[in-house]
Structure formats: structure tokens, C-alpha cells
């Protein structure tokens, strides 16, 4: 690397590399151990969340027999699917506008998109609550869907836009030179090329919706409990193995979707132009 790195400095750097490696390992342990503990105890045959008595799936059985949990799961899926579908379409259109056009007010549009991703959730939650009450809209599944679309659009926009910015424009220009209409160009050239980004954006939108607690907490009504709200209300009665089991189900669902999304994003790198 350098002319100056004698044996002493090399030895030093090996020691500091080793220290960095150990530190990194500990951070990963810190990131994963707490969730791991919750998942581990969900398979405990005893009611205790401290002593592991033996392997059992009885708490998962109890989950399946709890109708309120199943209802919450159904609500979460319904909200997630509908909100994702709407947010993905709107987010993709927005990404196309922002990456392909220069216009007055673009900075404002950009800032609003980013503000929506970093605005503290509690502010979004209470402002929507105030808005729905002022507008006379009853709180329930509909208001949850509206809120989820509002906070996931920006994430879809950012992911799709990243994909668009790395895309080779010459393919679209070629299609248009060959006589394709703008619509044909979009459906036959642009969309297939950005599809991995769109799919990844959709999957992230779904996990955000599926996991959201704070915003949902403020805009849900009676009988419109989602899984995170259900977990929260169960928590009020103390820590139980059933919550561990439910948490495990939610974490694994998220994990599967995230790994799927990352495959889409990883696969998209190979086909990136320029």
C-alpha cells in the first residue's frame, strides 16, 4: 500500500483490524440477540419467559385459537395490501416526475417527500387524528389505509427514483426513435426496466404498513385493530409467551419480505446502465 508501512505499522494495523472485527461482531450480537431471545422463548413449553423448560409450539396453537388475533392479522394484511397498491402506483408516478423533469417548485416537492419520511411519527399520527375528527370521518380501517398510504408514498418514491437515476436513457430514446409512442415506451421499455425498483418499493411499503404502530394507534377506531395494536394491548396485561409467539410471526413475516425486496434490489444492479 505505502512505502512507509514497515513491519511495526503492519503489526499495529493487524491488532486494530482484529479489535474492529470483534467490535463489529459485538454490535451484530447486540442487534440480533434481543429479538432472538423473544423468538427463543416463544418455543418454551412453560409459561415462564425466563426459564426454558423444553421445546413446544403450544403458544402458537393458542395464537391460532384466539379469534381477536386472527382478526387483527386479517386487518393488517388487508390494510397492507391496499395501502401498498395505492402507494406503489402514486410513488412510481412521482419518481418518474422527479427524475425526468425539471420544473418550478421541484425543490418544494423534493423537500415535502423527504419531510414525510423523517417527520416524527407521533406528529403525523396526531395531525391525522385531528384532521379526521375535524372532517367528520369516523376512525376505522379506511382511515388506517389513508394514513398508511400517506407515509409510505415517499419511501416508494425514493426507492424507484434511485432505480431510475441509474437507468440507461438511450433505450427509451431508441424506442421513441423507432416510432414508439410515449405510452408504448413506458409500458414496453421503462416499466420493465424499473420493475425491480417498483417491486422493492412495494415490499418496503408493505413491511412499513404491516409493522406500523404509532400512526395506526392514533387513527384506528373500535374493531379496527391491526397486529401491532393487538400486541400493544396484550402487553398491558404483562409479558406472556403468547406475545413472544405473535412477535415471532410478525418478525418472520417482515424478514421474508425484506429478503425478497433485497433480492430484487441486488438483482437490479446487474442490469443497471451507465
Amino acid at each position: 500500500m505505502t512505502v512507509k508501512s514497515g513491519p511495526v505499522q503492519k503489526g499495529m494495523s493487524r491488532v486494530s483490524d482484529r479489535a474492529l472485527l470483534i467490535f463489529a461482531g459485538l454490535i451484530y450480537l447486540f442487534l440480533y440477540a434481543p429479538i432472538g431471545i423473544v423468538m427463543f422463548f416463544s418455543f418454551n413449553s412453560a409459561k415462564s419467559t425466563q426459564n426454558f423448560a423444553g421445546f413446544s409450539t403450544r403458544w402458537y396453537g393458542e395464537l391460532l385459537r384466539d379469534q381477536t388475533v386472527l382478526d387483527a392479522f386479517q386487518n393488517s394484511l388487508f390494510v397492507g395490501v391496499i395501502a401498498t397498491a395505492i402507494a406503489t402506483v402514486i410513488g412510481t408516478l412521482t419518481a418518474l416526475a422527479l427524475s425526468r423533469h425539471e420544473f418550478r417548485g421541484k425543490t418544494f416537492a423534493d423537500s415535502s417527500i423527504y419531510a414525510a419520511t423523517v417527520m416524527p411519527e407521533i406528529v403525523v399520527g396526531v395531525s391525522l387524528l385531528v384532521f379526521f375528527v375535524a372532517a367528520g370521518v369516523g376512525l376505522g380501517i379506511t382511515t388506517i389505509v389513508i394514513a398508511h398510504v400517506a407515509f409510505t408514498i415517499s419511501f416508494v418514491t425514493i426507492v424507484v427514483r434511485a432505480r431510475l437515476s441509474g437507468m440507461d436513457r438511450s433505450l427509451e430514446e431508441a424506442a421513441q426513435d423507432l416510432g414508439a409512442s410515449p405510452m408504448q415506451t413506458f409500458w414496453r421499455v421503462t416499466l420493465p426496466l424499473i420493475l425491480p425498483g417498483v417491486m422493492a418499493g412495494a415490499m418496503l411499503a408493505f413491511t412499513l404498513s404491516f409493522d406500523d404502530f404509532v400512526i395506526t394507534f392514533f387513527v384506528s377506531g373500535v374493531g379496527s385493530s391491526t397486529l401491532p395494536l393487538k400486541i400493544y394491548s396484550m402487553l398491558k396485561f404483562g409479558v406472556t409467551p403468547v406475545i413472544n409467539a405473535l412477535s415471532t410471526v410478525v418478525v418472520l413475516t417482515t424478514l421474508v419480505i425484506i429478503l425478497g425486496a433485497s433480492r430484487f434490489l441486488a438483482g437490479s444492479d446487474d442490469t443497471k446502465g451507465s
Partner: peptide, 13 residues
């Protein structure tokens, strides 16, 4: 990307 609520709950446990 994993549920905030569950990650906080893990520390309760």
C-alpha cells in the same frame, strides 16, 4: 425494517 414495537418489547422481556 423490523417492527419497532417488538424491538422495544424485547427489552421488556
Amino acid at each position: 425494517w423490523t417492527s419497532f414495537l417488538i424491538r422495544a418489547y424485547a427489552w421488556v422481556v
